[in-house]
Every structure is written in C-alpha cells, then in structure tokens.
Design a protein around this nucleic acid. Structure first.
Lengths: 344, 344
DNA sequence: CTTCTGGTTGGTATCGTTAACAGCTCGTCG
DNA sequence: CGACGAGCTGTTAACGATACCAACCAGAAG
C-alpha cells in the first residue's frame, strides 16, 4: 500500500531538466564547462526532486577511490580520554569534509580485528587507532593495499606507522620522582596490563624513578591489569593492608584514579595520570600528570589526512608534552620528608 | 616506483580457483548450493590472495540496499553523557554486524544539516539523533525515502519518529520539590537554551514545582543558554550577588554542575541533573537526578534496528526512569527548614 | 535409450555514478 | 567562404559486486 518514493537518481533529474546525466553530474559536482542557463535548469530540477548524490555509487566509479570516511578505533568511547580523542577527530574530519566511523575494541584483540575488517570492507581512506595489547602485524596487509594508518595514544609494536603519543615513561618517572622528593619511599603503582603500550611505559617509568633514588622496587606495591574503578579500589585496599603499606600511590589513568580516590585514606599521597574535570575540587585537590587528548587527536588526524593526500615521507613519531600539575594530593609529605622530620 | 598492489577482486579469486565470479560470490557470502570441493578451492584462493569483499560495490547492487551502517548525531561526543550514549550505540550496532558513523552538531543547526546530509549521501540505514534546538522538519524527506530515524535524550518537534527520553519535567519538579521541602524558597536554575527540548522540559518542571508550593518565580534566579562549566560558574556567581540571593541551586546538566560546584559557597544547597563519577566524593557529596545513558541508547538502538528490519508500527515514545539520589548537597536546609527554624 | 529431476555452475544485465572521448554549434580568422 | 578552435553536451564503457536465468551433468525413472 505505502509505496515508498525511492530517492531520485541522476537520470530522473536529467529527464526533468531535459539534459543528459553527464550534464547533471557536472552540475552536481560543480564542474566548469556547463552553460549557466543549463546549470540553472539542472539546479532547479535538483531542488524540485530533492536529489542528493549517491556517494556509494560515486565512490565505486571515481578514480581516486576515496570514500571521504576514516575509521577510529578506540578501547571504549565512554572513557573520557577517548571521548575527547573521538570528538577532536570528528572535528578535524568534518572540516575536511570527511566522516568518522567509530569502533570499540573493548580491549579484545579479536574484536579489534573484526572492527578493522569492517572498516576496510567499507573502504575507509584511513584509520586512527589506539591498539590493544599484542601484535598489530595483521594490519600490514591493509597498509600495503593503501589504507593509511596512524596510531594515537599508544604505539603499535610490529607496525611501521605514524604515531602520536606522550612521553609516558618520562612523565611517570618525573611524577614518582616528585613523590620521592616529598619523602616517600614506599610508592604503590596501579595500572592496566603491561602489554598495553602506555602502561608498559608508565610502569617502566615508575621503576626507573625508584631505581634512580636507590629504592628497591617491591612487587607487593604494584598491580597490573586493572580495568575499572572498582578493580583499582580493590587493588589499592589490598596493597594498603600489606605489612609495610605504601605512603603514596600512583594511578595509571583517570578511571583507575576515581576508584582509588574513593577508598584512599587521608594522609596517603596520590598522583593520577590524566587530568580530570573535578581534580581541583576534591579534598585534597588531586595532583595529576596532564596530557591533552584534543591535541593528540588533532595531530593524529592531520597526519592521517596528509598521508591520504599523498604524503609518502617516512613514518613519524610525534611526542606531545605532559605537565605535572601539583594540587596538593601529590605533595602530602612522606616519612622521609624534611617537613615531617626536620634535620636542622 | 612503489607499485601499490591493489586489493584483489572477485574475478582474481575466480581466476585463481578456476571458477566463475558467481561461484566466488556464493562462497564468500556463505550461500548454499556450492559443491564442498569447489567451496574449499575458492576458500583457499580467498586466503591465498587475501581477498576481502568490497561492501561499497555490494551495497550498490544488492536488492535490500542496506549499508549495515547507522549514523549517530550528538551535540558533542566529548560530553560524558553523550560519550556513554555513543559507546552503548556502538555496542548494539556491533552485535548486529553494523557500524556507526559519528557526527557532532556542536549545537549548530547548520552543521546538523550538513552532518545529516553526509549521512544520507552515504546511504546509512538509519539515524540516531539528539536534535539541536529548532525545527527538525527538514528530516521528513530523508524519512519518506526510507531512512529510519530515532531520537534519543531529546524529542524532535515537528517530526513523527520513535523517541527515547526521560521524564525531564517530572524529574526536575521532584528535585525542586525536594529543595522546597528542605526549606528553600529562593532556588536558582541554570540551564542551556530553552529551545533545546530537554532544557525546555527541565525549566518547565522547575516552574511547576515553585508554582505547586505557591512560590513566585523570580527571573533573576534563572539563567538559560549556558554551554560550558565556565558559563555556569559566571552565571551562578552573578545570581548569588543579587539583592536576594538563592539558598539553593539546580544545575541543568553535568558540565554545568562542574562549573557551579567550583564556585558555590558552602551552605548553598545544590542538585545536579545527571549523575557523575565523583559526585559522591565531593564535599559535600552532590545530590543528583540520575538517568542511565546506556539504557537510553540501548533502547534507541533496538528500536532503530527493528525499524530497519521492517517494523512499521506507529512511532513510539519510550520514557525511561530517573532517580533522585540524595547525597548531602541537596539536603542542606534552607531558611524555612524545621531543622533551622523549629516550630515546636 | 530417452526424458526428467535436482544439484551445480556460468553468462549477462544491472545498481548509480564518473572517465574518456566524440560530436555538435557557434563565432572568428585567414 | 571554408576551416578551425572553443565551448558545451552527449554516448559509451566501466567500477565490483549480485539477481536472474540458462545451461550443464549425473543418476533415476519410464
């Protein structure tokens, strides 16, 4: 009964305007070489029928084969850091007339492959990825077939691509050094799996800072593989019950920080990786290692579009700055602090 | 120099396996009616060449014309509420073998139209929208041409589509009633533009609660069109400097709540629309009107896929529950409170 | 031995668009 | 006055896949 009026094609517009489809194509794409009068007639027909070009057919036929679509694969868009990355990516893409397909790996390598296969089946021009733990070599075939790839936030082992990251190692080494300078010697570390590039780096930074201060690392103060605030809360509670509990704790990212903060006793120093909205409003205000997800994503998107438009220079690694923002929680003095045990 | 090895086509696989492209098509799509031996030979050729079906060409030819792609248009994915919506949408889509194209309107009706035009040009099967302020009638043409549409979080005036929302009016009326019950009579309201459906409803709920208590609404305590935490901080500071300042404040969403909380003096009661990660950890803990963005988006996505797969029943409006979670900030007594001015 | 049936397989047209080229209509110049 | 070029428009053949139908082959039935 309800006949659905299918969308008009170029040939319908051509019939309406009394020209050939080629002329319609030229007008629709704003090409030169159409008489103004003809162009106006075609434009009127387009408006009258409500014609809209079918980009699927267009992409199939065009020589450049560009879909004007890129894929963004993150762990989880609900994560505030990744949400900021997605937002910034969409913004740059929009400015360049592109759209963003989004996919979540949810830390699952199998799902990661599925999502990327779905991206390439739709012939995206490029991919922006935060790779999950493990080997990314399977992306090489997509790469050799012309799909441009940029990694953001995390590097991809085994894959030679543009990468935009921060100096996770240096940032954590600095932060742990900061705690040590405030008199702490027993410092807890809470992170996700070491196999995730960022967390591997952050843990290395933690160890390096302890080593530089001549402190023996105690594995009892370290927890890996934490995925949620609840995980982090349980983990920090556990390490605080140890015979020699830590006097300071570092949370490896924002989500873990929320969980830690909920159960951390006053008096234990605390630094979080990633700045977050209410960090300054908590009691005490939270000292953080701030990075700028918008800048990371913007840089990655610009790199990607440069590649899509023909940049064939060797892959680059862009390292963006971090900033240690002391707000109070990271400056709570430890047992070796001069303010607690003055020497003079 | 670097000849890029273009991806193999079905005809390459067909040549490799010594069959016709039709047979390859049947094997690739898992259709019945291919001899097991032939299928195995084709499968081997597919693996050898690394063949992947081109969904762009496929979509052009198929009778159902489905792209297995939906579009999600939100104000801003960086907003935590919208990020949760996006994440849940992606999850449902993934389970159904679909992908999600994402677009941000950034509260700009012009950009909203651009994004939606880009969606339909790519022939998405359906759209999930949080409409910006203003009229959405322009979507009717897309709708009559077969694009399924579902609104989430906000209704779309002038458009007859499935809609998944919460009872914003009732939730705010209840929350303001809660403040009145705690002795407040001068209550501030901070929201975004009234033309945005949710904020219109929330403001109506505010007025209704005052009216029910016989309190005259004072326009000096109301601010609309606030878009950021900074906007909200300025606005609340301004209304607190009024001759008769409010003793309680309601923030219309999470982002505004952050800004209000940063500058709100202790002693002023406070309720926020939307629950947020650290609400319970602030001092005092923040009383909120909680809604569940994951449930909203999940419901919207299920509705959309039902439509895409042929459900032609009349458009539905799904209203999901909210919950007033008293945590402290909303229970600070006002001047008329029995605890401050006991009557016995 | 011929015809029929059912399971396989292949040929051809087509989806909506653009690339490449052909052809037409002028006005202009030698 | 005829040839030529510039400007405009149309024709044809793809892009990579699927829909539809025809053709083939073996074994069974008559």
């Amino acid at each position: 009964m309800t006949s659905r009026p299918s969308r008009p094609r170029m040939k319908d517009v051509a019939a309406e305007a009394g020209v050939s489809v080629m002329t319609v194509s030229r007008v629709v794409n704003g090409e030169a070489g159409v008489a103004p009068l003809t162009a106006a007639r075609v434009a009127a027909a387009v408006r009258k029928l409500g014609y809209q070009r079918d980009d699927v057919a267009r992409q199939l036929r065009r020589t450049d084969r560009l879909s004007q679509t890129i894929g963004l694969m993150v762990d989880n868009v609900a994560d505030p850091f990744m949400a900021a990355v997605a937002s910034a990516t969409e913004d740059i893409a929009h400015r360049r007339g592109n759209m963003v397909l989004i996919g979540s790996s949810r830390a699952d390598p199998h799902r990661e492959r599925e999502v990327i296969a779905a991206f390439t089946a739709r012939r995206v021009d490029g991919l922006i990825l935060t790779p999950v733990a493990g080997d990314q070599r399977f992306l090489r075939s997509a790469q050799t077939r012309g799909t441009k790839i940029v990694c953001v936030d995390r590097a991809a082992p085994g894959l030679d691509v543009d990468t935009v990251v921060v100096d996770n190692f240096g940032a954590v080494r600095q932060a742990v050094g900061h705690l040590i300078a405030h008199g702490h010697r027993r410092i807890g570390y809470l992170g996700d799996k070491r196999q995730i590039w960022t967390f591997g780096e952050r843990h290395r930074g933690y160890l390096a800072a302890l080593d530089a201060a001549g402190i023996d690392a105690d594995p009892a103060l370290v927890r890996h593989g934490l995925r949620s605030g609840a995980d982090a809360a349980r983990a920090v509670t556990a390490i605080l019950c140890a015979p020699e509990p830590p006097t300071a704790v570092l949370a490896g990212n924002e989500v873990l920080a929320f969980g830690v903060r909920a159960v951390l006793p006053a008096g234990v120093a605390f630094i979080a990786f990633d700045d977050f909205a209410l960090a300054a409003q908590l009691t005490p205000p939270v000292t953080v290692i701030a990075q700028d997800p918008v800048a990371l994503a913007t840089s990655a998107a610009h790199l990607l579009f440069a590649r899509i438009h023909g940049d064939t220079s060797p892959p680059r690694r862009v390292v963006m700055p971090t900033e240690l923002i002391p707000r109070g929680s990271g400056e709570i003095p430890g047992p070796g602090s001069p303010t607690r045990t003055p020497r003079r």
